[in-house]
């Protein structure tokens, strides 16, 4: 790499050095994430063994099983929405959590971004800390708080606000709260980042044109902060869709979401191909969602983290 090397060779050396530097990280991810994903894809077309594992016979049964069910009666295939229901419930659950995260996350992000610079750092730290606290611990804390005999119900009962404990733990509502609690910081931080860069002279201009406060929010601030809102929504929606811990702990193992369905196939149910197919379908939904947003918003806006 000394100055005497002719430019073409220097360029080639340069590319080689780049490749050498990048290769460990790329090889590890390629070898231990991309290759495994490919194996899952292959497994989703195999036949399950009775007690687990796979038999190397090609079939699309796993995908057929997703939409149809062999009747317990007579083995005929009937259209079944059972698994679709799990997916659609997960979808609704994730979408609702995303919406709630937005409804409380946007004002929070806005409020923080409009604080004086000195306070802002403190607020950001306050939102960031939960983001890095163990998800399992946070979910446990939430379960502890809202269970029937927990501190929240105890407090409300003793204040006479309610006569009977509200059932939150082990319900879909509880799972929803758990998801919002898990991923709320993912919504606040990207929105904060866009609002912080927002040019408030535009707002002043709008006021000068006699727009009212909420029109300004709706017509000017929100559209201009769309990239942050979209990034935040993706960061909440995608992990919510495949969530495992919140439905498992706060749902009492009773109402499966996609993540639990997949896990179950590799655990007690021992149907690897079906679990693999379910994982591939989830992967597809995630990719389609990402591409959809990327298309709509242009490339630069979809930046995870």
């Amino acid at each position: 790499m000394s100055a005497a090397v002719p430019p073409v060779r220097k360029e080639r050396n340069n590319m080689r050095a780049r490749a050498a530097l990048m290769s460990p990280a790329l090889l590890i991810i390629g070898g231990f994430l991309v290759a495994p994903l490919f194996v899952v894809l292959v497994y989703s077309f195999l036949t399950p063994g009775t007690y687990g594992g796979v038999i190397w016979e090609w079939t699309t049964d796993a995908y057929v099983q997703f939409l149809f069910e062999k009747d317990i009666f007579d083995e005929t295939l009937i259209f079944s929405t059972a698994y679709l229901q799990i997916y659609s419930r997960s979808f609704v659950q994730a979408a609702a959590s995303t919406a709630i995260c937005f409804l409380i996350g946007f004002p929070t992000a806005y409020f923080i971004a409009t604080r004086p610079a000195a306070q802002r750092n403190m607020w950001v730290l306050l939102v960031t800390v939960p983001y890095w606290i163990n998800l399992l611990i946070r979910t446990i804390a939430m379960l502890f708080l809202v269970r029937d005999n927990g501190p929240l119900n105890h407090l409300l009962l003793s204040w006479g606000i309610i006569d009977e404990p509200i059932h939150i733990a082990y319900t879909n509502f509880g799972v929803g709260i758990g998801l919002v609690y898990s991923y709320l910081p993912f919504m606040v931080l990207p929105i904060y980042a866009t609002i912080e860069r927002f040019d408030f002279r535009l707002v002043e201009a709008a006021f000068d044109l006699y727009a009212d406060r909420w029109t300004v929010l709706w017509k000017i601030i929100l559209p201009l902060c769309a990239p942050g809102v979209i990034a935040g929504s993706l960061l909440v929606f995608i992990p919510s869709l495949g969530a495992f811990i919140a439905p498992d702990l706060l749902g009492g193992g009773k109402n499966l979401m996609i993540g639990n369905l997949i896990a179950m196939q590799f655990q007690a149910s021992r149907n690897w191909p079906f679990g693999a197919a379910a994982a591939m379908i989830l992967m597809t939904i995630v990719l389609v969602t990402l591409i959809f947003y990327a298309r709509r918003q242009g490339r630069s806006t979809v930046r995870l983290h």
Partner: peptide, 17 residues
């Protein structure tokens, strides 16, 4: 028997979803 196990698993998955 294997076929019963499969039926049980189906009922079980059906219950948990």
């Amino acid at each position: 028997e294997d076929d019963v196990i499969r039926l049980y698993d189906r009922i079980w998955t059906n219950l948990l979803k």
